[in-house]
Simulated scan of single mutants.
Amino acid sequence: MTPAELSRTVLSTVRRAVAAGELGVEVPERVVVQRPPRPGCGDYATNVALQLAGAAGRPPRQVAEILSRRLSAEPGIALVEIAGPGFLNITLDARAYADVVRQVRAQGPEYGTGDGLAGEAGSVAAEDGAVRAQAVAEAVNRLLRAAGAAPGAAEERVTAAEPQDDPSARLGPDAARWSLLRPPAEDPPRTDGTFLAQRESNPLFRIRYAHARTRALLRNAHDLGVEIESTVDDPYHHPAETELLGLIADFPRVVETAARRRAPDRLARHLERLADAFLRFHDECPALPKGDEKPSAVHAARIRLADATGIVLANGLHLLGISAPDRV
């Protein structure tokens, strides 16, 4: 279950509560669900109860209790808890996580694309000679297409804090593009040699290394005879697995938000978080059998999760105009 699917589920829950006379409100067009700011607060959180409370003439917590009872019965949802004045913290069940992995692997390069901006025509442009603004404009246009916007006349111009010179000759095209896109447009870019360093302090290296490790795991799994494909639901329970899965599931929403805000830096930061989560998963959840250990369903499930991670990392880098090599 992706955040977009969960958002539709929450919205449907509100609609049914209104139809049943439990809430006297106008059903909103959209409901926002987001990853919670800290662990232990479920997989996703929404403040829809606080948004509806005023119109409903009820305390937010009462609205949350009505929605919580209905949401808890929805397929794919394991637990709904009420936090603070009325936030709903939602935990997905294992089947919902398995569905995310299957969806990513089935869609491949198309995962992350959507129709959130369908019906809108949008393109952006940059002033001639503006190196960074041009890189931002190219990335934004790719994001707009990925979010469903149709190409249109470039009536909108993007601006960005420009570097003193074009860093491409010094850094190469990929590192230069990352250095220009990673900071928010209003912040000055760093165009020194940091992004050439093959070490953990370089976020682009971490992302590309994480992607390369996912490809290496697939190759090694094949050599070790791990049966990757399975019809059995994947047993994802370890915190490192669920954190990684949440970020994978959130990828389509991040792409759409980055397109709406004309902010490719949002996608860049998400890829950093995804790479870091994968590297934790890689260390804490062995995906390959060791020594005389026989391949198991757990190994196969983790290889599938690694594969899905690699697909998302590559898709995100390509939206930024950056290559995703299988080996680094």
Score class of each variant (00 low, 15 high):
residue 4 A to V: 00
residue 8 R to M: 03
residue 8 R to T: 04
residue 8 R to S: 09
residue 9 T to L: 14
residue 9 T to V: 15
residue 10 V to H: 06
residue 12 S to Q: 11
residue 16 R to S: 15
residue 16 R to G: 08
residue 21 G to I: 07
residue 23 L to V: 06
residue 23 L to P: 13
residue 23 L to H: 11
residue 25 V to R: 08
residue 29 E to T: 10
residue 35 R to A: 13
residue 53 A to D: 01
residue 53 A to Q: 03
residue 54 G to S: 11
residue 54 G to A: 13
residue 56 A to I: 02
residue 58 R to F: 02
residue 61 R to E: 14
residue 64 A to P: 11
residue 66 I to L: 13
residue 66 I to Q: 07
residue 71 L to V: 03
residue 73 A to K: 13
residue 73 A to F: 00
residue 82 I to W: 04
residue 83 A to I: 01
residue 85 P to F: 02
residue 89 N to E: 12
residue 91 T to R: 13
residue 94 A to H: 08
residue 94 A to D: 14
residue 95 R to D: 08
residue 99 D to N: 09
residue 99 D to P: 01
residue 99 D to F: 04
residue 100 V to D: 07
residue 103 Q to F: 00
residue 104 V to K: 00
residue 106 A to L: 10
residue 111 Y to C: 04
residue 119 G to M: 03
residue 121 A to Q: 15
residue 122 G to T: 03
residue 125 A to H: 04
residue 133 A to T: 03
residue 147 A to K: 06
residue 151 P to E: 13
residue 153 A to W: 09
residue 153 A to Q: 12
residue 153 A to L: 12
residue 165 D to V: 02
residue 166 D to S: 10
residue 168 S to D: 11
residue 173 P to M: 10
residue 174 D to E: 08
residue 179 S to Y: 00
residue 185 A to R: 15
residue 186 E to D: 10
residue 197 A to C: 03
residue 197 A to Y: 11
residue 201 S to F: 00
residue 206 R to T: 06
residue 208 R to T: 14
residue 216 A to H: 11
residue 220 N to E: 14
residue 223 D to T: 05
residue 223 D to A: 14
residue 225 G to V: 04
residue 227 E to G: 02
residue 232 V to S: 14
residue 232 V to R: 15
residue 247 L to R: 14
residue 250 D to Q: 11
residue 253 R to Q: 14
residue 254 V to N: 03
residue 259 A to R: 02
residue 259 A to L: 01
residue 263 A to S: 13
residue 264 P to Q: 06
residue 265 D to N: 15
residue 267 L to V: 07
residue 269 R to P: 00
residue 270 H to I: 04
residue 271 L to C: 08
residue 275 A to I: 00
residue 278 F to I: 01
residue 280 R to C: 05
residue 286 P to T: 11
residue 286 P to R: 14
residue 288 L to Q: 09
residue 291 G to K: 06
residue 292 D to F: 00
residue 292 D to A: 15
residue 295 P to F: 10
residue 295 P to I: 05
residue 297 A to I: 01
residue 300 A to L: 01
residue 300 A to I: 03
residue 301 A to T: 06
residue 302 R to C: 10
residue 303 I to D: 06
residue 312 V to F: 13
residue 316 G to R: 02
residue 316 G to M: 02
residue 321 G to E: 07
residue 324 A to N: 07
residue 327 R to C: 07
